[in-house]
Simulated assay, not measured.
Amino acid sequence: MTTIVSFFFATALTIPQAKAAFLDPASWLGAISGRGPATVAAFPGPKAITLRDDFGPWTPATQNTPVFVGPDANPYNPTGFATRGFLGDLPASGPGEWSGLFTCNSAYSGCLGATEITYRLPFAITGIAGNLDYGFGFSGDTADALPFFGFDRSFFDPEFGPRYNGFWGEVFAPTDTIRVRWSDPADSFAFFNLSSAVVVQARSSPTSVPEPASAALLGTGLLGLMAARRRLRGG
């Protein structure tokens, strides 16, 4: 835990403010500790991933299967059919890393490609954090394309490009399902990758350790954070 926290702090030397998220490890860990004993573990990887677009569910294997979108939505194809075009392969989401890719082709065929991805985890969690690499097509259109991460349009400076890379964390009610939706109608894309990802296991999770050990784990992490802060300040 000390190693994880020290890494997080090193990635967040400049800490901006998002609409609804924790962008520094101290705040995130404080929110966790305020809820009582907690078990922090590596992101376990999802048991299942479900994808949807505006026309229903689909899988990578069926993304090139034509779907009827209507002739008005697809003026260059009189039949009104289009494939669920995708900009690239789905990023991997395994232990310690959580990823997603969202695409939209609104100009000619409605929104195709993933507009909603649901991740089903093997146990319930109450928080998640890591180093977030989050990018999107146009800073003026899609800065808040994925509301789950809590950024709004004013957060990003167009001069530096439509991308964020740094610590990110969130806490929420216990759940084993994370659903990330594309909310921007622009003909664009968005992606995210949470590396060195950790989760806070819900206390009712069968894989949680006993409370004394949980408290000790979190306490060790907080001490590591304080030590990392002193080193960065030169104290």
Rank of each mutant, 00 (worst) to 15 (best):
G96P: 09
L217S: 12
T65D: 10
R52F: 15
Q201T: 06
I128M: 15
W98A: 15
R229G: 07
P37Q: 04
A41N: 07
I128T: 07
R84T: 09
S33E: 14
F155K: 04
R163Y: 00
A26P: 00
P206Y: 10
S204H: 14
G219N: 13
Y108D: 14
V180W: 11
V180I: 15
A129H: 04
D184E: 14
T79E: 08
R230N: 05
A197L: 07
D141F: 09
F148T: 10
G140F: 11
V40Q: 07
G36M: 02
G113I: 11
I178F: 03
S139W: 08
A124C: 05
T79N: 05
G137F: 13
P210Y: 06
G70R: 06
A107M: 13
T50D: 13
L90R: 11
G113Q: 09
E97G: 01
P44W: 07
N77F: 02
D89V: 08
N74W: 00
S27E: 02
F123N: 00
D89E: 13
G166W: 07
L132P: 01
I178M: 10
T14G: 06
Y164V: 00
R230S: 10
G34N: 12
F151M: 03
T11C: 15
A42N: 12
A21Q: 09
W182D: 13
T2P: 01
S33H: 05
P206D: 08
T65K: 14
A213N: 03
G45P: 12
R230A: 11
T14N: 12
W168M: 09
N77S: 06
L217W: 02
T142K: 01
T39V: 02
D187P: 01
R181Q: 14
A12T: 15
A20H: 10
L23Y: 06
L232T: 12
G135W: 08
D53G: 07
T118Y: 09
F68E: 09
V171P: 01
S6C: 09
S154N: 09
S196E: 12
P25Y: 11
P44E: 06
P25L: 03
R153S: 07
L225G: 12
A26Q: 15
L225M: 11
G56K: 08
S188T: 11
N77Y: 03
A143N: 04
F86K: 09
R120M: 10
N165G: 00
P75A: 04
F22C: 14
G30A: 11
I125K: 13
F151T: 03
A145I: 09
R231G: 07
M226R: 14
I117H: 04
T62G: 03
S109C: 11
F86A: 07
T14C: 08
S205F: 02
T62K: 10
V209T: 09
L101I: 13
I178S: 10
P212T: 04
Q17A: 15
F160C: 00
